[in-house]
């Protein structure tokens, strides 16, 4: 009965985001000590593990703006029992999606071809570079998402509350001060 509970395995990533949500995650400050008692990290900017293995929880920051984002998101969905969209960009495309009313080809030409000083090489064609999608998409339009933590970024408190609820087996719920979209 008293055997130590196995640690919850968590993976995190940032797609088309600014890492602000990850920074906010670190803002839980001293709760970090409690957290490491409860969880262990798989793929995450915090561990530098390159590919996600089977996990309990995946936290996704950022929307989907390029082919690589698609692959990473799919990898997370395949491996994480619970997948959470963290922050405005993951939930609705956020700032990167503000390009959605622009034509992508025109945009690329404007930057790499027409503009003085950048025009010499044309649009980059290195296969190492992920290709851009015509529109930036919220992640729930590509894979099934189990939970959303809103905010730009969500506060550390909100992320902490959400995770501790989840780990404790409670349906996560944010209190009013933790609910914000900006």
């Amino acid at each position: 009965m008293n055997a130590p509970r196995p640690k919850v395995r968590i993976a995190t990533t940032s797609l088309a985001g600014c890492f602000g949500c990850h920074m906010s995650f670190l803002d839980i400050d001293e709760h970090l000590f409690e957290l490491v008692e409860l969880v262990e990290f798989d793929r995450s900017p915090l561990t530098d593990i390159k590919h996600c293995g089977p996990c309990d929880i995946g936290l996704i920051e950022g929307g989907v703006c390029n082919a690589e984002n698609v692959h990473v998101l799919r990898e997370f969905r395949r491996n994480c029992k619970t997948l959470i969209a963290v922050g405005a960009c993951a939930i609705n495309g956020g700032l990167p999606a503000q390009r959605n009313h622009l034509d992508l080809e025109a945009c690329l030409r404007e930057v790499y071809v027409s503009r003085d000083g950048l025009g010499e090489g044309g649009v980059p064609n290195d296969p190492e570079l992920p290709l851009l999608l015509d529109k930036v998409r919220p992640i729930h339009e590509l894979v099934r998402i189990d939970y959303f933590i809103p905010g730009c970024p969500p506060s550390g408190e909100a992320i902490w509350k959400f995770l501790t609820d989840l780990i404790a087996g409670r349906t996560p719920r944010l209190s009013y001060p933790m609910m914000h979209f900006d």
Binding site: A67, D103, L104, E105, L108, R109, V123, P124, N125, P127, L131, L132, L133, D134, K135
Partner: peptide, 11 residues
């Protein structure tokens, strides 16, 4: 959804 970027980059 990648077609536009393929055209622009020639990839």
């Amino acid at each position: 959804a990648l077609a536009a970027a393929r055209r622009a980059s020639g990839r």
